[in-house]
């Protein structure tokens, strides 16, 4: 029996969709939080980081309650758009996005906080608006943080298991992502399939981390050279 590739393709689809959501939400929010101060900021920050420290089962439970048939968001989506995300691939995307959001947010925010404000102020004195400053100064200078956030959240999305299983369930071919397929194969004693998927998952994750380390080292070196040139 050949290996069923649907979990791999499904996992990639889910991870890509989740990362798009995380990039689109994480960068603006990180930019906002790095530069603005407002009452209750600490609470909001904690909330953004929460999915990183909570067990995935807690995230899954909350999402299942929110998006379930009788949950507040679930009822809203069903009534307005006639869609249900529970036990659907969109549920897997939401779960993956929620758990990987803090990785993106944290690393982008850290990078943006590291950008020298005098550079931004210089642009402002030369007449640039806030949006232009953000896109021409802050964003390009925090590029390394964005890339590492991107990769980490992609890898996290790819590996999301607990919350995904609770929200998207286990429908082979439709919501059965790689980690879930591995779990099911191992549970049912199908060690060969489990081993194959484990191998793919491990090699892929190793390459991601390896490449990220190499890349960030090179970045540091080139920044050091830049400073040296100054």
């Amino acid at each position: 029996m050949g290996l069923d590739f649907s979990p791999i393709i499904l996992s990639l689809k889910v991870a890509i969709a989740a990362v798009i959501i995380v990039v689109l939400s994480g960068i603006p929010l990180a930019g906002l939080m790095a530069r603005r101060d407002f009452p209750g900021k600490d609470a909001v920050e904690s909330l953004f980081t929460l999915p990183l420290v909570l067990p995935p089962s807690v995230v899954g439970f909350i999402l299942l309650w929110l998006f379930g048939k009788n949950g507040p968001l679930g009822q809203f989506l069903a009534q307005t758009f006639n869609v249900s995300v529970v036990f659907h691939i969109s549920g897997a995307v939401i779960a993956a996005a929620v758990v990987s959001f803090p990785l993106m947010y944290q690393s982008v925010k850290a990078a943006m906080e590291g950008v020298d404000p005098t550079l931004e102020n210089a642009a402002r004195t030369l007449g640039s608006g806030e949006i232009k400053v953000f896109f021409t100064i802050t964003l390009p200078l925090s590029w390394p943080g964005i890339v590492s956030g991107f990769i980490l959240s992609f890898a996290r999305s790819l590996g999301e298991f607990g919350a995904t299983l609770m929200v998207a369930g286990n429908i082979p071919g439709k919501t059965q992502t790689m980690p879930i397929a591995i779990y099911m194969a191992s549970e049912s004693g199908d060690d060969r399939t489990a081993m194959m998927l484990v191998l793919i998952m491990t090699v892929f994750s190793f390459l991601v981390v390896f490449w990220l380390n190499r890349w960030s080292k090179r970045q540091k070196k080139s920044t050091a050279q830049d400073i040296g040139r100054e």
Partner: peptide, 19 residues
């Protein structure tokens, strides 16, 4: 359309919750 559950209790929970 079949959500595969980890045990029978989970099947019942899925039905009870309306999911």
């Amino acid at each position: 359309k079949i959500v595969q559950a980890k045990d029978v209790k989970q099947v019942l929970d899925y039905v009870k919750s309306g999911n």
